[in-house]
Simulated scan of single mutants.
Amino acid sequence: MRTGEGHAALMDGVYRGQRHIYDLTRKYYLLGRDRLIDELAPPVGGKVLEVGCGTGRNLIAAARCWPGARFYGIDISEEMLKTARASIARAGLERRVRVAQGDATGFDPNALFRAESFDRIFQSYTLSMIPDWQGAMREAVRHLSAQGALHIVDFGQQEGMPPWFRAALFGWLARFHVAPRALLIEAAREVANDAGGRLSATRLYRGYAWSLRLDKRPR
């Protein structure tokens, strides 16, 4: 079994049951998602891709926030995509939001969506679950338009939190194959430099989360 297929099977196993209660439980600790959506600001008629779209929660919120854009999502778990497709249909957004199974570290947007590139790509609490998370960032940047931007929000290192909180959170996250990336900012800066772009990073909620924006070309 190839690495991507193994990870897909793992994620399907994790979320086969959890997908039904995922959004209800995650809203309490996946902080900063709506802040990211508010800052996307895609151009009118632009294309926005979420890498690791899960249940479709973020795509639906983003489509409502930015009605002039078109939205796409990929996820490695077909189980999660079942919920996403149903949620998108219930929201009446099937014409503006499309999802497909895809690996964050290697996907063809033209084959999946007949799209050459995207004006905005975002990764919300996905890099901490992807084994080759640095490769996932590079793959996202590869599919940005010339003036595109990659937005990321994910777990920080809890710098401002008590040690017991950090230990408890990281231990609990590990049960779900989630590993906050201590070198996230440094790795993103390297990706930005290699792409000739610019990175801005903000620590949120006393280091609970990190918010990053990588512009393919400096603003």
Rank of each mutant, 00 (worst) to 15 (best):
F176G: 05
R114G: 08
R96L: 08
R33M: 04
A209I: 13
R2I: 06
W164N: 02
Y29S: 07
I185S: 04
E39Q: 11
A8L: 09
D12Q: 13
F118R: 01
L169W: 10
R198I: 04
V153M: 03
I74S: 09
A140E: 05
D103T: 01
E5A: 14
Q158C: 06
A182K: 15
D215V: 02
A195N: 08
L10A: 10
L40A: 00
E50R: 00
A192N: 03
H143T: 06
V51L: 13
P162A: 00
N110Q: 11
G45F: 02
L173W: 02
T105S: 08
H177Q: 12
R70W: 09
R98N: 03
K27S: 11
G45E: 06
A167S: 10
G4Q: 11
A209P: 15
I21A: 14
E94I: 09
P131Y: 01
E78P: 03
R2V: 04
D108Q: 03
R95S: 14
F170R: 15
G32Q: 03
G197Y: 11
G46M: 07
F155D: 01
P180Y: 04
A174R: 15
E5G: 03
R198V: 08
G102R: 06
P163D: 10
Q157F: 04
L212D: 09
E139L: 05
G135Q: 09
G54M: 05
G56K: 12
Y208F: 15
Y15S: 02
F107V: 00
Q123P: 01
R217W: 07
K47S: 15
M161L: 14
A209N: 07
R217L: 05
G54L: 03
A104T: 04
R138G: 11
G102H: 08
G106Q: 09
V153F: 03
E79V: 11
A111W: 09
V97R: 01
L183N: 12
F176Q: 06
E186V: 07
W66S: 02
F165D: 04
E186K: 14
T105D: 07
G148F: 09
Y72G: 03
V48C: 10
N110S: 09
V14R: 13
L144F: 12
M1N: 04
T3E: 15
K27M: 11
Q157K: 13
G148Q: 12
D38E: 14
E79Q: 12
F107T: 01
G68L: 02
R206P: 00
Y205W: 10
M129H: 06
F165E: 08
T105V: 15
C65R: 12
M129S: 13
R114A: 15
G106E: 10
L112S: 05
F170L: 08
N193H: 10
G17D: 12
G156D: 04
A89L: 12
V48E: 05
F155P: 01
Q123S: 09
R198L: 05
V141H: 02
A179Q: 09
L214Q: 07
Q101E: 13
T83W: 06
L214S: 06
V44F: 03
L212W: 02
